[in-house]
Amino acid sequence: MFISAKKLDGLSSITLDNYLMELSMFADIVKKKAEDIATADVRMYLSQDGTLKMSTIRKKLSILKSFFSWLVSEEYIKREPTAKLKAPKDEYRLPKAPSIEELEILREACETIRQRAFLEVLYATGCRLSEVHGLNKADINQQNMSTLVIGKGDKQREVYFSIRAMYHLDKYLKERKDDCEVLMITERKPYRRFSKRGIQREIGIITQRAGLQDKVSPHVFKHTFATLTLNNGAELVSIQELLGHSSPDTTLKYAKITHERKREQHKRYLIQ
């Protein structure tokens, strides 16, 4: 019933699956009726595995809080056992985004037209891997150099390609000799949608060939997009919309500008 309620709230199928899996694990370990569960039971469950990262514990607690809060609101239980529990401090660190110079090195390391198209699309749109992975050829608006993607919470938004990304994407599509409607396909027959893991592997090959010390993944291009555009003077609200963030606080993580940019901003905006 809880999962059904959350589905009506507009949560994505992936999020609902995560909720169901987490609550099933909790039920298997605690083995108590909902009304009998105490704060100590939840604390025990969260601390049983000493190898879990703080970010994982935060996610687990968030799901449990959502579940028990719903039980109280629906009057299935009288008190919420997670109310006294505070989420551990966020240890999340943004991966280092490649510099402009490193981005050029990655471009030169591409050996195939497909690799270059993948790289340019991921960087120019600032999309998550899952958002790009689900695109079809018909989704691309050639005239506006844009496309619509489905992000977290099944929310749709418009993202844009650069001239360079559009050029390499067109080059990739014209090279193909198939009738597959999918935007990113496998190299060999039967042609089908290229898997997320496959795209990750292609980016890994490019990174290895580029000889960069820091690991570069499809997700890192999202950070690169955000960091470089903010450093170049883009408005925070615009980047928030382009990235599909529901809160500006999430976007603010990327707003670490260079010393040169800070100096230029001070000089430009300070009233003498």
Rank of each mutant, 00 (worst) to 15 (best):
L135Q: 00
S24A: 14
N144Y: 10
K155C: 10
K215H: 13
F68K: 04
E175K: 13
K253N: 15
T229E: 08
D170Y: 06
L52M: 12
E35A: 15
R193Y: 05
E175A: 14
S246T: 15
L129A: 07
V132M: 14
K155L: 12
V149K: 08
I77C: 03
V121A: 05
K137T: 04
D49G: 09
L169N: 00
R116W: 00
E120V: 01
R58S: 10
A165G: 00
M184I: 13
A5R: 01
K86R: 15
L61I: 13
P218Y: 03
R128F: 04
K262F: 07
L148V: 15
I100A: 15
A226R: 13
V159H: 05
T207A: 14
V182F: 10
K196S: 11
E101P: 03
M54H: 11
V182W: 11
L236E: 00
R43T: 03
G211M: 03
Q265P: 03
D249N: 10
L183P: 06
D139N: 03
H266P: 02
R209N: 08
T147W: 02
Y269E: 06
P98N: 04
K96T: 15
T147S: 13
L228S: 08
I203L: 07
M184C: 10
Q156K: 14
R93S: 12
S4H: 07
R164P: 10
K33L: 09
M25N: 14
Q142T: 11
I199Q: 00
H223Q: 05
I205L: 13
K33N: 15
S162M: 06
I29F: 15
A165W: 06
F118C: 04
Y92N: 11
L212M: 06
S69F: 06
P95K: 05
Q265G: 05
A34K: 13
R188G: 08
Y254N: 02
I199R: 03
I206K: 11
L52H: 07
E108F: 07
G198F: 03
L71N: 11
T227G: 02
V220W: 03
A226S: 11
L119M: 08
G153N: 12
S130F: 05
R176F: 07
I205S: 13
H266L: 12
V159T: 08
L230K: 03
E91A: 12
L236I: 08
S69H: 02
F221R: 02
P190L: 00
